[in-house]
Design a protein around this nucleic acid. Structure first.
Lengths: 245, 245
DNA sequence: CGTAGTCTTGAACTGCATCAACCAATGTGG
DNA sequence: CCACATTGGTTGATGCAGTTCAAGACTACG
């Protein structure tokens, strides 16, 4: 159970940003050593979230952001009538909970898709620390802005792409993020079900499944349940950029 | 041409936040008098944007946010293949340009749908001022977060609603925002074309037009080109919450 | 080892897109 | 001030992408 990089007698649930291999992907990007030490003091306990468990849920009081340390999450919003939509998938180094700042209450559910660990970032402390450190402030603003840009990209996808284009774009986005984390650009294991992919992409699970099969028939992918191997990345890219030719 | 509320010999293009009737809807919400004065000094010149003109465009260097003072805007993102998506409509008191923080370059186009005026908010100054004033910092974070929540709502709409539900939700959202600005909750003039509504809602303009006609047949709306009168708001609400019954 | 959850595939249906014609409003130049 | 062009909107007929319903196969986990 012990993290081998931290002495067992110390708080094993706390991980210093300065010692974290995700610091170049996460909130601390570009911070000085001095700033990193301050950030270390702010980061709260690490929290383990089991597969299927909710990190937070809509309506819950917002007190902290969470940085994914290991594992994989989905976020979902629900309409009053019960309709649910997956609004994103988050992997190591990505931030959860930004939607909560708006009303001091979380606006979505965050659910672990595999056993995961997150670092708690008490929001009040982040605000005061970012009044002190310009770079931290700027980095935090960039992360929020990036989330807005990402969401606009999803709106484009949902508003104007066809099923094949959506799935191709989704796979390319996933592999790109995995590659940034040192994983292979051509092999991935999906952590989510066809239904969750469908919800995110505005499709039914059957359509997702059929489209996977179609890509396999066309020798673009090799699909074995959740194990995906990309045989022809260029073809995937072409599917996305095809528009209505 | 002169604004009757400012002496003609002063900089007629500059409007103080402290004297602006939008301050309860805009960035200054909840600020103290002292903070308002500082904000006044920061706000750059007011800029007029003619109908059809672009306030900024994707790729342009990002230097400032813009608060809509009067008028109406749309924002659009484009994929590499030319596909375009309307990502939002902005009215008085709403902020434009948040997407630019992410990369120091704007990620979308902002186009005036009627002759408009915006207040320029130099971004560097906003960051330094928000290091000084906790409330301003917090308010700015809330606005960014609200944008994220809004986008997630649009994703829900695009991903899981049918044409009628989308248009009903759109109209209710518009009237709600107009009502917050003192306009009637039951009569509105659309500033955008059917095509722009369609792009925003992930529908073709013909579908938008047909759906307007259907609502008119059902005595939910009275539609005269861009003049819309809501005859039965409850029915509209029901259309949105109908789900798949 | 069995049962529940997940995935695949087929067949029929449907909501929206597409294509196309027409109309109304607004603008333009002679 | 009228003829004509342009832009935006409506409506109809037809087609198809993706949904729905259904049945069966695979897999994983207690």
């Amino acid at each position: 159970m012990h993290d081998t990089t931290t002495p067992p007698h110390l708080d094993a649930l706390k991980v210093a940003c300065s010692a974290c291999n995700l610091r170049e992907l996460c909130l601390p990007v570009g911070l000085s050593d001095e700033e990193l030490v301050s950030l270390d003091q702010m980061i709260g306990a690490r929290r383990a979230v089991r597969r299927g468990e909710r990190l937070f849920h809509a309506g819950e009081a917002f007190t902290a952001l969470y940085a994914v340390r290991t594992g994989f999450f989905k976020t979902t919003t629900a309409a009053e009538d019960g309709r649910e939509q997956v609004t994103g998938f988050q992997m190591a180094g990505e931030l959860l909970g930004l939607d909560g700042i708006s009303t001091d209450h979380h606006a979505c559910d965050a659910i672990a898709l595999e056993d995961s660990q997150v670092c708690m970032i008490p929001y009040g402390q982040l605000e005061s620390l970012s009044r002190e450190f310009t770079l931290l402030q700027h980095q935090f603003h960039k992360i929020m802005s990036r989330e807005i840009v990402r969401d606009h990209g999803v709106m484009l996808l949902l508003g104007s792409m066809r099923a094949e284009e959506r799935l191709a774009a989704f796979l390319l986005n996933l592999t790109q993020r995995l590659q940034a984390r040192g994983f292979s650009p051509s092999a991935l294991v999906l952590r989510m079900t066809r239904e969750e992919i469908g919800s995110y992409l505005g499709l039914k699970l059957e359509t997702v499944s059929r489209t996977f099969s179609k890509f396999q028939d066309e020798a673009i992918l090799e699909v074995k349940q959740r194990d995906i191997r990309i045989l022809d990345q260029g073809a995937l890219q072409q599917v996305v950029n095809a528009a209505n030719c």
